[in-house]
Computed example of a mutant assay.
Amino acid sequence: MRNMSDDHTHVQEFFAARAAGWDTRFPDDGPAYAAAVAELGLREGDRVLDAGCGTGRALPPLRAAVGLSGVVVGVDLTPAMLEAAVRAGRNHDGQLLLADVTRLPLRTESLNAVFGAGLIAHLPHPAANLRELARVVRPGGTLALFHPIGRAALAARQGRRITPDDLRAEAGLGPLLAGSGWDMTSYIDEDARFLALAVRQG
């Protein structure tokens, strides 16, 4: 069994090494992020978390969705990613917290929604970690698990094949979410994007 601190160290090292050039590697993802955020159905004044926010690319559309009266929080485990978010000025769109999404420093049922881009593949214990995301969202609130390209395109980019145990496969993701406090309401996996939406169980 892997040690959780080993998982965290691996994730931090992976992203710290890539933080400085992250946005320049994927310069055209902005519209895909904005479209995914629109699917959350946020309203003026809502409170939303960007879990594993990285360089904060989702923060501007999240802020636009909830308005000045809303609350946007970006949480990430890697200091270098948050530093890149600040350099890009995205700290003006949301509060950035150096924290672990598996143990969030947020009150129970304090949020309306969670946005997670590229998140699920980096969760050390997906069922427990998705339950922690459910803890901070009110019943009926929403979760978006997003990636700016689909599973097949991502696998091809990384020089690998999709395996049956891929966490993002529809057949596995639905039950995983259901056992973690979420009901999956839609699933899209196409070359241009991956987007699974879920509602917090009552």
Rank of each mutant, 00 (worst) to 15 (best):
E39P: 05
V73R: 00
L77E: 04
R161A: 15
T78E: 08
D29H: 12
G41E: 10
F115G: 01
D50E: 14
R161P: 06
G67I: 06
A171S: 13
T108C: 12
C53K: 01
A134H: 04
L143M: 09
P175W: 01
A156L: 14
W22T: 09
L42F: 03
V199P: 00
D191K: 10
P27M: 04
W182R: 05
R103T: 14
D166W: 13
F115S: 01
L40N: 07
T24M: 09
R200T: 03
G174R: 07
W22H: 10
E132D: 11
G89D: 14
L195A: 06
P164R: 02
H8K: 15
A128V: 14
E190H: 06
R47G: 03
A58D: 09
D166I: 09
R90W: 08
D28A: 12
R107M: 07
V72S: 02
V72M: 03
E132P: 01
G67C: 04
L40C: 10
L177G: 00
T108R: 14
R87Y: 12
L106C: 04
A156K: 07
G56R: 01
A85E: 09
G159N: 13
Y187C: 04
S69K: 12
A152D: 13
D191H: 08
V114E: 02
P31K: 06
P79L: 03
A155M: 10
E44L: 14
L173S: 01
R161W: 12
L106F: 00
A20T: 15
V137H: 00
L167E: 13
A16T: 08
D6F: 07
L104H: 03
G52A: 11
L173F: 00
